[in-house]
Design a protein around this nucleic acid. Structure first.
Length: 481
RNA sequence: GGCCCCGUCGCCAAGUGGUAAGGCAGAGGUCUGCAACACCUUUAUCAGCAGUUCGAAUCUGCUCGGGGCCUCCA
């Protein structure tokens, strides 16, 4: 069975059949660049990064578009507060966004358009919508006439009467209907603006996505993604604009990721439980964050907490330790053929999980199974002499790494990663690496004189301070407890 | 008030009609001078109630609990 995806429009999982066989067009709403990104942005972007990677892995030639919203009220306000131009502010946070996403190991989308690069297209769409009666100009603004679009609210499954009860007209807006939304906003003094048939102004929030997606992917395309919170009004309005203007079906599959909660509560600035990606990266390894996010299905809410991150780190460490030992165990052995059996099993399971609406949690579980198999084989007596076992392990190892690549995981050198995490953890303890090494040396002395009592004393002392000693053939190593 | 989602082992988390994956933590064991890693074994009837069905965590209804959207928001 092939890929199945949960479509917000139908509320069900559907068989994924791109409009053009073998090719996929995907648009994901990016960020408004007025501040640093938070863990919620990290989730959305990681999720769609994995979806993009998996589509390609599955053989689809995929065009992935993710925009920057670089003109908006929030940007204007923030720029004014800081006494810089909107453009400067936007540039600053576009750079910050790119840095954050690179740090999290995301691949770059095919296109990363900016709203301000598509003003002509935006004006064009506004004009078409006016010509077709879907929109009207009103004292310098242009509004969408939602009554005209029959399928309005189909995505968010709301009804117009109830919505209207809560809708308000903001001061200065000249709408026919409170539900109508702005396509073009007349410029107020000091705001960035562009020329248009309705006077100088700037685009409304939703229209830019219609303009960028149609320019880069066409009027109709396969996947449109974003956070759940974008379903209404953003995506609903995009549909109204794009289908109103083109007269064609806009998007085939609507995918929406769930939220990140913090300690069971919604993350919000007012609650003060707001974490930026940069803050988090000071405490946690980027791959741990990725592992944490992918350990849940993308539509479920996920709870960001120290305990959950610590667990993610333990889980990821299991992988890296297995890679390290597999590498060591198979090092320097010449093999002609690889045994593909175990690796193929893991790969089939992985595919099956990912085909079911990108179930990364289940996919990772199958990779854990692969790790166990690998560890089991390596532990067999005289492993290095049994080339068929070595072949199995090599293949499993390579397979897990290759599949991990789809999730953006296991990209570090095992020893380096383990060392990095270890040293980061050490910062929280009241002991230095030098002290530990020194004590290990003392213990070695004691043990070489068969003074095991003193040796155990040192082990106990270190353990009390959060350090575990590991005796290996090559000598004594340590790790955090 | 309207609409939507969720409630699975101590914690995280799969499973959407055929008899409960995986990880973390815990217990016992093998290995180890000791320990750690690894490996083996072990721990749930699925919020509650009532239905549909030969059979339900999976479908329906109700109750309880949690969350989201309806204003900007990933």
């Amino acid at each position: 069975m092939g890929l199945r995806v949960y479509n917000t429009m139908s509320g069900k999982k559907e068989e994924f059949q791109p409009r053009v066989p073998g090719k996929v067009g995907m648009y994901v709403c990016g960020v408004t660049v007025y501040d640093y990104c938070h863990i919620g942005h990290a989730r959305a972007n990681i999720v769609f990064d994995v979806i993009y990677r998996y589509l390609q892995f599955s053989g689809y030639e995929t065009t992935y578009v993710r925009n920057y919203t670089d003109v908006d009220d929030k940007i204007i306000n923030r720029a004014n507060e800081r006494g810089i131009s909107s453009k400067e502010l936007a540039e600053e946070f576009i750079t910050a966004f790119d840095e954050d996403m690179d740090a999290l190991g995301l691949v770059r989308p095919t296109h990363e358009p900016r709203a301000t690069e598509y003003i002509d297209k935006i004006v064009e769409i506004c004009q078409i919508l006016i010509d077709k009666g879907f929109a009207y100009a009103s004292s310098g603004d242009v509004y969408y006439r939602v009554d005209k679009f029959d399928n309005y609210l189909q995505l968010s499954k709301r009804n117009m009467e109830e919505m209207q009860a809560g809708a308000r007209i903001a001061p200065g807006e000249q709408k026919e209907n409170p539900m109508d939304f702005a396509l073009w906003k007349g410029a107020k003094p000091g705001e960035p603006s562009w020329e248009s048939p309705w006077g100088d102004g700037r685009p409304g929030w939703h229209i830019e996505c219609s303009a960028m997606s149609s320019s880069l992917l066409g009027d109709s395309f396969d996947i449109h993604g974003g956070g759940r919170d974008l379903i209404f009004p953003h995506h609903e309005n995009e549909i109204a604009q794009s289908e109103g203007a083109s007269g064609k079906p806009f998007v085939k599959y609507w995918l929406h990721n769930g939220f990140v909660n913090v300690d069971q509560e919604k993350m919000s600035k007012s609650l003060g439980n707001f974490f930026t990606i940069r803050d988090i990266l000071n405490t946690y390894d980027a791959e741990v964050i990725r592992f944490f996010i992918l350990s849940a299905q993308y539509r479920s809410p996920i709870d960001f907490s120290d305990q959950n991150l610590a667990e993610a780190q333990s889980g990821l460490r299991r992988f890296y330790e297995a890679f390290e030992s597999a590498e060591a165990a198979t090092e320097g052995i010449d093999l002609r053929d690889l045994d593909r059996e175990e690796g193929a099993k893991v790969e089939a399971k992985f595919h099956e999980a990912m085909d079911d609406d990108f179930n990364t949690a289940l996919a990772i579980a199958h990779l854990f199974d692969g790790v166990r198999t690998m560890n089991r084989l390596v532990a067999i007596k005289k492993f290095r002499k049994k080339t068929e076992l070595v072949a199995q392990v090599r293949d499993l190892h390579a397979t897990i790494l290759r599949l991990g690549e789809v999730l953006g995981l296991y990209r570090s050198q095992p020893t380096e990663w383990l060392e990095k995490v270890k040293l980061a953890g050490l910062k929280k303890l009241e002991i230095t690496g030098e002290e530990i090494v020194d004590l290990i040396e003392q213990r070695l002395q004691a043990r070489s004189g068969k003074d095991f009592a003193r040796g155990d004393e040192i082990r106990g002392e270190l353990e009390a301070r959060g350090i575990l000693l590991l005796d290996t053939r090559e000598g004594t190593n340590w790790r955090l407890k």
